[in-house]
Nucleic acid binder design. Structure first.
Lengths: 101, 101
DNA sequence: AAAACCTATCGTATATTTGCGATAAGCAAT
DNA sequence: ATTGCTTATCGCAAATATACGATAGGTTTT
């Protein structure tokens, strides 16, 4: 990408919402989050069984959701338990609510 | 992208929401939509003056929003007036509402 | 210490996205 | 018909995203 202009400055809410939206912009990630909502939490392995995707692919999607702040991982040896990150979840929620009015 | 599996089948709502989210996944497009909400409608040229981006770039973002169904263009020669597509907007709204509960 | 299990990361291939300038396309007015 | 105005599209370049297999890293159990 050519970035002649040193990154446009947007409103902070705009940036935050775009970041959340981007993370939600893939059906697999939506599905993962819906799954997490139902189960409240789950392990990577559970998801690998639910979705016909390679373990590395699932892991990558989880990483993106984590980077966006929508989920968080908790070490439960020998597994890792992923849960919704409620603070950011609520933040995203209110951003979308406000956006759509 | 390698697609060994012939495209995973997701729930229709999941697919729809991911499509909307993807369109919202860029700050410029969020900003354009916010602008449209304020003004109710506007022309491509207006946006070119608001954002420090090339006209072709703006046009491309508008195209994506149109493809996602979030806006619609109406010919007002010699200009084109863009407005929010209310039906799909409301659909997106309810999808996100339901998603976040 | 070794084996087994679970998950993350690396390397690779391909597709998509983002952005620009240049050009084309459509319409109005001259 | 030509000009001018507005917007879309094309062609390019660079960055990101998506998916996989292979491998590494960390824990627990043997």
């Amino acid at each position: 990408m050519k970035r002649s202009l040193e990154h446009i400055e947007y409103n902070q809410d705009t940036e935050a919402m775009a970041k959340f939206a981007k993370a939600l912009g893939h059906p697999t990630r939506i599905a993962i989050l819906k799954h997490l909502e139902n189960q409240s939490c789950c392990f990577t392995g559970d998801l690998v069984e639910v979705f016909p995707l390679a373990q590395s692919t699932i892991s990558q999607h989880l990483k993106e959701l984590k980077n966006a702040g929508l989920i968080q991982g908790e070490l439960k040896p020998p597994k890792i338990k992923y849960c919704i990150q409620r603070d950011n979840w609520n933040k995203a929620k209110s951003l979308f609510l406000e956006f759509f009015e």
